[in-house]
Design a protein around this nucleic acid. Structure first.
Lengths: 261, 261
DNA sequence: CGACGATTTGAAATCAGTCAAGAGCAGTGG
DNA sequence: CCACTGCTCTTGACTGATTTCAAATCGTCG
């Protein structure tokens, strides 16, 4: 069984977190053991379940072991903005835990297996083992970088470019997590949710996707996305992977540059 | 002399950083002394000077001692998005220093006195003194919270609300730094720069400000802004100060709620 | 005074939103 | 097996907020 069950916690339950950290940082055997030994409780979450609600005072951090979740917040007019999407290995509310109270919501998109780790346990580890602390801090800063890129996306790119950009981001992040390929993956969001991430309406997202389809840049039915020509889509989306701070991002962006001239 | 000069570094040069951290965290005498003793070099910067350029590999973090700076990034179409504005006491590129390379630009708005602190010195302190580490980490997360709110602002509020929101944010942050009052302050940005922060055009910012003026919500000429009725402006701007994580933010938002019913 | 940048205003164009209705598809229960 | 329900996706016609393009005004500084 690849998906852990709440009834059978094991020493490898937290491995997705470790794998993700090891992509960017080197941790010695003791560091790794300490991370895997973090106390936690496992929970299954249903689709659309709120993990953290704005204003909550979270005492635990939520680590995703499978499935997808988003961060979002409502404006006073009822409109919602999605800030980021999270997947296996992401600690999804270290931000809220450390800030004292939640300034945004965290909600599942799909069914999720999650490990809830007491925030003090994480902090103790972060400051008793600097390599771990740096890795975790770094990860929260990568989140920041993605927030910034989304702001740029929403503020300064038109619908076509904006949508293409997001499809490219998903492609690389899903691939990096072993959940898809750069050119083909399952999108875990409805067009409504995509609209909330893009700062558009669902109607306009639909038309924009149709446009990209008609141009022959992507194919998609239901949630399955196939990127016919990644380099061109990246060009349309003004996509430069470096903001993702993936290990191979610089290399990727160079490849794309070479491919598109 | 309140503004330090490069030619006279003293043990209190870094005090603005300490003051800002002490607003949210308690640090004992040794922590405080260690922070003030951080090695640094002082530099005057001119208006519009780039502090960090996208792709740089910064080896130092830049602490603002006076003046204003912004973080921003250009889209491929030449449009620019401003992510945040920074002022006295802010460490303006801890993000970029820790991420390994800069994924965005940092640029002064005004003349600036800055202290450049070697990144390793900060990290050593952060992990040898957990109270300092938590305070610094926390600060980078507050930056994140502001990034998120700006994304919401740009993505889901109309021009009027969006502009009002930003004027409210500036009011509180400038006041918190002792650089103005909640109802009157000097805005350090041109309408062009404001437009880049709001995801609008300078023309539309101009019209929107005129609208707020005509409604009697604000008065402004040149860079000086007077907020005639903060509670109403906050309502128009859908502004809830909690995302700023100022010590008195919760209290503030309650006061506003009470005032506007 | 002249130059330059910032602000202001107008008119026309356009991108994206709104409103509304229909189609496709999955799950549920009779 | 089929009708029903609900949700997502799709499309059309219309509206409107914001952009674009252009030009005039204002203020500051040399």
């Amino acid at each position: 069984m690849s998906s852990p069950s709440p009834s059978s916690p094991s020493s490898l339950t937290l491995k997705p977190m470790l794998d993700k950290l090891l992509m960017r940082h080197s941790l010695d055997a003791e560091d790794q053991a300490a991370l895997l030994a973090l106390p936690h409780t496992l929970r299954h979450l249903r689709p659309q379940e709120l993990v953290v609600r704005e204003d909550d005072v979270p005492k635990t951090a939520c680590l995703l072991l499978s499935g997808f979740a988003i961060r979002h917040k409502f404006a006073g007019n009822g409109a919602r903005q999605v800030f980021s999407i999270h997947l296996k290995g992401d600690i999804v509310d270290l931000h809220n835990s450390l800030l004292g109270f939640a300034d945004h919501n965290v909600q599942t998109l799909t069914r999720v297996d999650a490990a809830f780790i007491p925030a003090p346990a994480i902090m103790d580890l972060a400051f008793s083992r600097p390599a771990i602390g740096k890795a975790l801090w770094h990860d929260t800063l990568v989140d920041s970088s993605i927030f910034r890129e989304w702001t740029l996306n929403v503020g300064r790119r038109d619908a076509r470019s904006r949508t293409a950009h997001m499809l490219c981001e998903f492609a690389l992040r899903l691939e990096a997590a072993g959940l898809g390929e750069q050119n083909e993956y399952e999108l875990p969001m409805t067009q409504d949710q995509l609209a909330d991430a893009l700062g558009l309406t669902n109607v306009h997202v639909n038309r924009t996707l149709k446009g990209l389809r008609d141009e022959g840049l992507i194919e998609h039915n239901k949630r399955s996305v196939r990127i016919v020509d990644f380099a061109t889509l990246a060009q349309v989306g003004d996509f430069d992977a470096r903001y993702l701070h993936l290990v191979n991002a610089r290399q990727l962006s160079k490849e794309i540059e070479r491919a598109t001239g």
